[in-house]
Amino acid sequence: MIETLIDIVLLTFLAVTAIVIVRIRSLFAVIMLAGIYSLASAGLFVVLDAVDVAFTEAVVGAGISTVLLLGTLALTGEQRKTTSRHGPLIPLAVVTLTGAVLVWGTWDMPLFGDPGAPAHQHVAPRYIQDSPNEVGVPNMVTSVLASYRGFDTLGEVTVIFTAGVGVLALLGFRRRKPRHPEREKP
C-alpha cells in the first residue's frame, strides 16, 4: 500500500516537473529541471523494483545528460525567445488528440501489477526459475542481459560505439591551427 502511495506521489511529481519544463523560459532552468526529472524517475524505478535501471538512470539522466546539455548550452547560448511562428493551439490540439487515443488504448491494457499480465507469461518465468541454476548468477538482470540476450547487448554496445564515432566525426578534436605557419617550418 505504501509502495502504491509513493508510486502515485512520484508520478505526480514527474507530471508537475514536465509541466514546468514546458512553461519556464530560461533554458538553463529547463536543463536543471530535466536533471530533477531524471532523478525523480530513478526514484520511481526503485519503487517499481528495477534497481539496476534506477542506478543507470540516476547516473546517466541526472549526471552525464545534464553535463552534456550544459556543454551544449555553453556553445549555443541562451535562448532569445520561446514562441514559434505557429501559436500553441495547433500543437496543443495534436497532442490532446494523440493523448486521448492513447488513453482509449489503455482500457485494453492489464491493470498495473496484474500477475496474469501477458508480460509475465512468456519467457520471464523461465528466466526467474532457471537462470540461477543455468547461469549461476544471482542478479537475474545481469544473466538475462549478458547471457540469454547477449546478441541484443552486443547490438546496443555497437550502437553506443557508433554514436561515439558520430559525435567525434561531427565535433572531432580540432587541430589547433598554428598562428604563424611559416615559423613551424625549420
Binding site: V123, V141, D152
Partner: peptide
C-alpha cells in the same frame, strides 16, 4: 520476483 526482462531492455536503452 519482478519481471527482469523489461529491466534489461530499459537498462540498455538508457545508455544508448
Amino acid at each position: 520476483y519482478s519481471n527482469p526482462l523489461p529491466h534489461v531492455l530499459i537498462l540498455t536503452a538508457i545508455v544508448v
